[in-house]
Write a protein that binds this DNA or RNA. Structure first.
Ligand SMILES: NC(=O)c1ccc[n+]([C@@H]2O[C@H](COP(=O)([O-])OP(=O)(O)OC[C@H]3O[C@@H](n4cnc5c(N)ncnc54)[C@H](O)[C@@H]3O)[C@@H](O)[C@H]2O)c1
Ligand SMILES: NC(=O)c1ccc[n+]([C@@H]2O[C@H](COP(=O)([O-])OP(=O)(O)OC[C@H]3O[C@@H](n4cnc5c(N)ncnc54)[C@H](O)[C@@H]3O)[C@@H](O)[C@H]2O)c1
Lengths: 204, 204
DNA sequence: GTAACGCTGTGATAAAATTCACAACGGCTA
DNA sequence: TAGCCGTTGTGAATTTTATCACAGCGTTAC
């Protein structure tokens, strides 16, 4: 079992490989990859070892080979996602993600405000939250994105889980409780910004 | 020196305290705080110990006392931030952050597209990027937020650093290199979403 | 009074993540 | 051929982070 930290870096490496391939670079050394990913050569080699990738001591790692091994590990097939909360952040995400990731496709968005529903925004159909269960079942959505205000986050998560969603990305600045077996990732921009403020203050 | 992980949790605890105070709750036990923060009682007690906070075994921790100790550690004075890249994500952030954090205040936004500059968006004045250096110096901005496309991220960071910024929050999905002494935090929504897809696939 | 309870504070321990450090290898030079 | 160089692959060591487990204390029950 590959650790979450390593998986995150593999996603990053994969993106870097796409760039390198575009630039016709054929081989990379661990220290080059480390530079590109703000990491250390030892870390890179350890990650690649974990991924079962092997390189050559004289040329480094074969870029195309890396890429296809990453694809194998990371992206088995596209999963469908639903976003709930079509506010400022929700709309930014809707505008951005179409065709951005080989792993995820946002196929529906929901809101409680009827002025935002039953339309198409950035190519994605929007529905009233009441239809969540039905749409998720019908279109086999497995991922949920929460961009509602914080008070609605927990109930939104609950509805998602009832509807059969297996993983949730939560942007509301509150922890969301989920039963075992459901993957939850919270992305708290406020805390990130505050951490920034804290650590920028003094030399570290 | 308190670790970054602990600091992040202290910010979260502080926010929880603000809520509890509003609700006139006077005391919390470590297991309650653990519940609210998706953590463990032992972790909470360890964090509070690190923060030099002491509670009572019968009543738990004094909420107001906690809050003021957190303020002390996390620094109560506001730091000014500038955002570069007034696109979909940049605007979402501009709409959200005014009066959200006691630690950070966004005071200016910049873009290379002149149709977005020299206005006021969500109460924040927008400028042409060429004015970055001048505005940052004049208004004593110490933090930078990058929401430009990925190709512009590194040069934006470089300009910020030249202008005297001490910490950067980067939303572009590329690692940004900074000299020692500058704090950089990258928040990669794409990787978060992909990680979600990866770990939702199988039971974990 | 004293026994029982539930919580804190923390040393000890475990687990996870990262880095060290070096043998082994391939290729280059002469 | 032999010697050197720079890199990989990886066990071992280190550092960081989280958990365990329990002594000690204030409170309550009787
Ligand atoms: N905008 C940002 O940059 C930013 C930054 C940090 C955190 N966040 C968090 O992200 C979330 C969304 O932020 P935002 O700025 O987009 O807010 P917003 O107010 O612009 O949007 C929230 C949307 O959720 C909808 N909504 C409310 N209750 C709902 C419910 N029960 N079911 C479905 N939809 C519901 C609203 O109608 C609205 O469209 C918030 O929790 C916020 O704290 C946002
Ligand atoms: N929107 C999202 O939800 C989302 C999600 C993940 C990552 N991102 C990342 O965040 C960044 C911004 O995304 P977005 O959707 O807001 O993009 P966007 O295209 O809507 O906005 C980018 C803005 O940056 C400005 N810009 C371009 N070059 C510039 C320069 N050199 N100096 C100053 N301004 C410049 C553009 O004029 C535009 O206003 C991108 O790097 C994107 O990869 C966005």
């Amino acid at each position: 079992m590959i650790s979450a930290k390593t998986i995150e870096r593999l996603f990053l490496y994969r993106r870097l490989m796409t760039d390198l391939i575009k630039r016709d670079t054929r081989f990379v050394f661990s220290h080059e990859l480390a530079n590109m990913s703000q990491s250390s050569p030892a870390q890179v080699r350890r990650d690649l070892m974990t991924a079962g990738i092997t390189g050559s001591s004289s040329r480094g790692y074969d870029v195309v080979n890396l890429k296809s091994r990453f694809d194998e590990i990371l992206h088995s097939s596209v999963q469908k996602a639903a976003l709930v909360g079509i506010g400022n952040l929700g709309r930014a995400i809707l505008s951005y993600f179409p065709h951005r990731s080989p792993a995820v496709e946002i196929v529906a968005a929901f809101d409680s405000d009827s002025s935002k529903t039953d339309r198409i925004i950035h190519g994605i159909r929007t529905y009233a939250v009441d239809n969540l269960d039905q749409v998720v079942h019908q279109t086999d959505v497995s991922l949920g994105i929460i961009t509602t205000p914080k008070d609605a986050a927990q109930t939104t998560a609950d509805s998602m889980i009832v509807a059969g969603i297996r993983g949730i990305l939560n942007f509301a600045p509150v922890p969301v409780r989920v039963p075992a077996g459901i993957f939850i990732e919270s992305l708290d921009l406020t805390t990130s910004l505050e951490k920034l403020a804290y650590f920028s203050r003094r030399p570290h």
